[in-house]
Structure formats: structure tokens, C-alpha cells
């Protein structure tokens, strides 16, 4: 079959501009996170393999679901960039962990912004899931890096 039928979307059939923009930004954050997970794996010892795989899988699933939700709402989902500017050079285990913390934190901020810009229950549920999952992974990476506190009290709060 050359033209698969998309699964019926449970999401909104349209989105106001501010909700659509925030969701596109969250999709962009998921793309960036996937890219970073691919990049850092070369700098982390094998015992992080499971955590990296789990994170990659989660971001890929979230990316796919977000693309589907946007398409269902009549929006054209934002594509991934070819490369992303890193907040710092990744050269070893500490810098790899630091960048993972940054990118997961970016994802929490992006999904909280969606929560504040939509009344749609399906989109809010997706945003809550994206925010919570990224906050939990950020906490694990902070612990691996020995950072304290391991979590901000209110993950996703910008600033």
C-alpha cells in the first residue's frame, strides 16, 4: 500500500495559533533531545546503555505522537534540524551528562508552555506526559552527574 491511512486521531481537529506554536516548539525540543541522545552515547560508558536506549525510545515515541497530533489538527509538523548548537562542548562523561540534563530540561519547559496555552484535554494530557517523563529523566541524569538538588521543585518552570 502506498498511501497508508493515518490512524484516527483522538486529538483536536484544529488548534489556535498559540497552542499550535507551543506544540511545534515542544516537537522541536523532542527532535533536539533525540539528536543529543545519539550524540552523547559515544562519550558515556556502556553501563549507561540502557538509560540512553530508554531515553531515545521515549523521545522517539513522543516525537511521533506529537507529529500525529499536529497533523490531525491540520498543522504541518516541524522537521528536525540537521544539527543543533550544544550548550557546551561534549568531550567526556561529565560534559555528556551535563548536556543530557540541559536537553531534558528544555523539553520540560517546552511542554509546560503547552499546558499554559491550550484547553484541549488530549493535548494537555500529552503535555503533562512529556513534562513528567522529561523531568524524571533529567533527575536521573543529574543524579548520575552528582548534581544536587537532583530536581528543581517545579520542573518546567522557565528561567
Amino acid at each position: 500500500m502506498t498511501s497508508p491511512t493515518p490512524p484516527p486521531s483522538q486529538g483536536p481537529s484544529s488548534l489556535p495559533d498559540d497552542a499550535a506554536q507551543a506544540t511545534q516548539d515542544a516537537l522541536g525540543a523532542e527532535h533536539a533531545a533525540l539528536w543529543v541522545y545519539g550524540l552523547v552515547s559515544a562519550f558515556l560508558p556502556a553501563d549507561y546503555g540502557n538509560a540512553l536506549q530508554e531515553g531515545s525510545n521515549a523521545h522517539r515515541a513522543r516525537r511521533d505522537a506529537t507529529e500525529l497530533l499536529l497533523s490531525g489538527a491540520g498543522q504541518s509538523p516541524r522537521s528536525a534540524e540537521a544539527a543543533y548548537v550544544l550548550p557546551q562542548e561534549v568531550a567526556d562523561e561529565p560534559s555528556a551528562l551535563a548536556v543530557l540534563v540541559v536537553v531534558e530540561t528544555d523539553v520540560t519547559v517546552a511542554w509546560r508552555a503547552v499546558l499554559e496555552r491550550t484547553d484541549d484535554k488530549t493535548l494537555r494530557a500529552a503535555a503533562l506526559g512529556g513534562l513528567t517523563d522529561a523531568a524524571v529523566r533529567a533527575t536521573r541524569w543529574r543524579r548520575a552527574a552528582g548534581q544536587t538538588p537532583a530536581t528543581p521543585p517545579l520542573p518546567g518552570t522557565p528561567g
Binding site: 509546560r112 503535555a127 513528567t132 523531568a135 524524571v136 543524579r143 530536581t151 520542573p155
Partner: peptide
Amino acid sequence: GSVAAGCASLRV
């Protein structure tokens, strides 16, 4: 959302 995510993270 941030409170819920914070509680989930605190379990970690």
C-alpha cells in the same frame, strides 16, 4: 503539571 512532574522526580 510542574507539581506533578516534581513529585514524580522526587521519587527518583
